[in-house]
Design a protein around this nucleic acid. Structure first.
Lengths: 239, 239
DNA sequence: ACAAATGGTGCGGGCTCCCGCAGTTTGGGT
DNA sequence: ACCCAAACTGCGGGAGCCCGCACCATTTGT
């Protein structure tokens, strides 16, 4: 079994390799690279069974790297190992997972024992695992009233990229009014509507983005990949 | 000499303490705590000469922690030790540094030698030092045409929080039209105006925030502290 | 099987936003 | 004291945004 480690923090990387050696004696070879681009290249060259990868890296983030890796070798099992329990990452990952692909999501704050367990479960047994901390997110946001569904999330992404209503409608194949309805429920779920009466003079559109970011529903990496998707779409439209 | 270390990553913390012991033999005592709140409490209780602190921490971020520490003991020398070279952090720090206070900013990617050097320079000699990586930021953004000045940055923060023009004008003591002029130059400097002709149908306001975040001029932590400041201001206005 | 709930669509009005035009104030430089 | 440039301000208009009202289609519950 060959494992690829993609991690730009030297301490975390050596810790990870240490734990891998301990948890997975069946590993014959591990390669460690420093960022997403190198990760893609390595995955293309050597045929790895599994990848353990940080999400926030300098040159190319984990989500995009995973996307290209899976694109080329869908059978690769990928374990994401991240500092943050941002909902954005989970959604971002879920969005790009091809059907029947094996992946996992562990936080770096997890104990050594937990990490070993997850390594075996995901990379060896092929189970899909998400850290319990992340599960709690869904509930922590209180009532399901506040949880965004997929189409609302899509509109939120477009809003975040700065598209105006007409363009969102065009991109998502909805009518203008429908987009605006989505936005209404978004404002509601993000708590923008609630604070409005108390503080008149807020720009709901910007406020929604602002809150989405501070509540970790969106983050920089996800915004960046969404931006690239948008550019791709614009390219198609252009001609 | 007593040093307080505020860092929530165990590996980084132990590395840091190791380097401190090596670089600063004159240190008589070091205390290590895990997050900003504990940091504030510790700084209040024990009288530390210097603090080394991470910027992104779970319960209370480094900027706010530094603000309260300096508020209570302005002579404290603080070295920020961060993963990211976000312009937002530098601006956020610069904003809260009281006059004649000693601080420094090093990236975690710095070499051991460099870290030792900075530790001595800032905590011992009382020099103000900023990692060269950060300096490069200013230039990297190319022409000075694209560098925001303080008042533009202030307006950008307000925009990011979702205030509409009228409120920004009120808060910053400007006329409505002046705020709008600021926004114009902001759109310009953030490159929003440039992409507009190619892609009609963008909401400049949101687009500006989006770009400010992806270019690291703003980030989550800064947004959060700005939000608290806003709430404080709203409180004053309210009565 | 009927009612209620959910999601999509059109119309229209009041508001904010973006920005061109034009006039005033401020700050440096000579 | 002069000038020029930069920053600030008011006015007005076209466009986008927020959202109430009204209507239709599909799904869900009892």
């Amino acid at each position: 079994m060959k494992i690829l480690v993609v991690e730009d923090d030297r301490f975390h990387a050596s810790f990870l390799q240490d734990v891998i050696g301990e948890a997975l004696p069946e590993v014959s070879e591990t390669l460690h690279v420093q960022d997403g681009l190198q990760g893609e290249a390595a995955a293309r060259a050597g045929r790895f069974d599994a990848v353990v990868m940080d999400l926030q890296m300098a040159r190319r983030n984990g989500i995009e790297t995973a996307r290209t890796i899976w694109h080329e070798r869908p059978r690769t099992r990928i374990l994401f190992w991240s500092n943050y329990s941002d909902e954005a990452y989970l959604r971002g990952v879920a969005e790009i997972v091809p059907t029947d692909c094996v992946y996992g999501y562990v936080l770096k704050t997890a104990t050594r024992e937990r990490l070993k367990l997850v390594l075996r479960a995901v990379l060896l047994d092929g189970q899909v695992m998400v850290d319990r901390e992340m599960q709690r997110l869904r509930r922590r946001t209180a009532s399901p009233r506040h949880v965004l569904n997929d189409s609302e999330y899509a509109v939120l992404l477009d809003l975040a990229l700065g598209l105006q209503d007409r363009l969102i409608a065009e991109r998502r194949g909805m009518s203008l009014r429908t987009v605006q309805n989505r936005l209404l429920t978004l404002y509601d779920k993000l708590g923008v509507s609630d604070e409005e009466p108390a503080v008149p003079g807020l720009n709901k559109r910007v406020r929604a983005l602002s809150r989405a970011i501070t509540t970790r529903i969106l983050n920089v990496e996800v915004l960046e990949t969404a931006q690239r998707d948008l550019e791709g779409w614009l390219g198609e439209q252009g001609r």
